[in-house]
Design a protein around this nucleic acid. Structure first.
Length: 257
DNA sequence: ATGGCTCCATACTGGAGA
C-alpha cells in the first residue's frame, strides 16, 4: 500500500496540481493538509472523479485536513486531537484504511517565538504525544503522517544556523519530536535515507527550490507493527517545480501488507 | 533586521504561512 502526505496550501487553488499528481503518482491513500477551505467547499466531486473517496475536516481560510483513499472508503475514527475542547483549528483527522490506522496531522507553525502561537504549538505537541501513546498501547498498525512543522535534526535544514530561533527548529520543538519518536515510532523517511539530505518544503522566496534551500518537515511515523513492512519511500520533488504549485512537495511510503 | 512570495478573505489590503 502506497501512502502519501501532501500539504497542498489551498485545496481549491491547488486543484489542477493535486489532480495531476494523483494521476501520476497514484497513491492508495493521500493525506492532505492546509485545505484552506470551509467544510462545504471541499472539491469532493473532482476527487471522486479521480477515483478517491475522502473524509475531510475543513475550516474557513486556514488549516483543514483530509484523507483520500482509492482502496476503500476511509473509516473515520476521529476528526480532532483529544485534550482541548477550546482548540477549534482543523488540524487532525484519523481513519482506518485496509486495517491500518492513519492519522493525518497539521502541527501548528508556532511563529513568532516566543509568544502565544509558540505556546499553542508546544501544547499541541503534548496532546499529540498523549494520543500517540494511546495508539501505541493498542498494538495495531498505525501511521502518523503530515506536516509536523519540525526539522528533527540539522541534517533536515539547508542552513541550520539561520533557523535556531525559529519555531520550526527551536530545541523545545526538536525535543518534543524526539520524545514522540522515542515512544517507539519509526521516522520512515529518515530510516530509508540515513545521513542523506531529504527535503519536503522549499519556500516561495528567493528561488529556494532552484537553490535546493529546503526543509524536511513532512514526516511519516510508523508504529512497531509496521516497521518491518516498510518497503520504500521518497519525495515527489518534481511537483514542487510545477506551475501554481504548493511550497511543499508530496512525500510517500510503501508498506507491504 | 527586513523582506522576499503565495494563499485566502471580501479586496484594492491584511493575516498567515515557514
Amino acid at each position: 500500500m502506497k501512502i502519501a502526505t501532501y500539504n497542498v496550501n489551498g485545496v481549491n487553488g491547488r486543484l489542477p496540481v493535486l489532480l495531476r499528481w494523483l494521476e501520476e503518482s497514484k497513491p492508495d491513500v493521500a493525506c492532505l493538509q492546509e485545505l484552506k477551505a470551509p467544510q462545504e467547499k471541499f472539491p469532493e466531486q473532482a476527487i471522486k472523479d479521480a477515483g478517491y473517496e475522502a473524509i475531510w475536516h475543513g475550516q474557513k481560510s486556514w488549516n483543514g485536513v483530509a484523507i483520500l483513499s482509492r482502496v476503500g472508503a476511509p473509516k473515520e475514527l476521529r476528526r480532532e486531537l483529544p485534550g482541548d475542547a477550546e482548540d477549534l483549528h482543523s488540524r487532525y483527522i484519523e481513519a482506518e484504511v485496509n486495517g491500518v490506522v492513519i492519522g493525518c496531522l497539521y502541527l501548528p507553525n508556532g511563529n513568532p517565538c516566543p509568544g502565544p502561537k509558540f505556546d499553542y504549538k508546544l501544547g499541541w505537541f503534548e496532546r499529540l504525544q498523549l494520543h500517540a501513546k494511546m495508539l501505541l498501547e493498542q498494538k495495531i498498525p498505525v501511521i502518523l503522517t503530515g506536516d509536523y512543522n519540525v526539522m528533527p535534526t540539522e541534517l533536515d535544514v539547508y542552513k541550520p544556523e539561520k533557523w535556531v530561533n525559529d519555531a520550526l527548529f527551536r530545541t523545545e520543538v526538536r525535543d518534543a519530536f524526539e520524545k514522540l519518536v522515542a515512544q517507539g515510532w519509526t521516522d520512515a523517511i529518515r530510516t530509508l535515507y540515513p545521513g542523506e539530505k531529504v527535503y519536503t518544503f522549499w519556500d516561495y522566496f528567493r528561488d529556494a527550490y532552484g537553490r535546493n534551500a529546503g526543509l524536511r518537515i513532512d514526516h511519516f511515523l510508523l508504529s512497531p507493527e509496521l516497521k518491518d513492512k516498510l518497503k520504500s519511500g521518497g519525495v515527489d520533488k518534481e511537483v514542487r517545480g510545477w506551475e501554481k504549485t504548493s511550497d511543499h512537495a508530496p512525500v510517500w511510503i510503501e508498506i507491504g501488507l
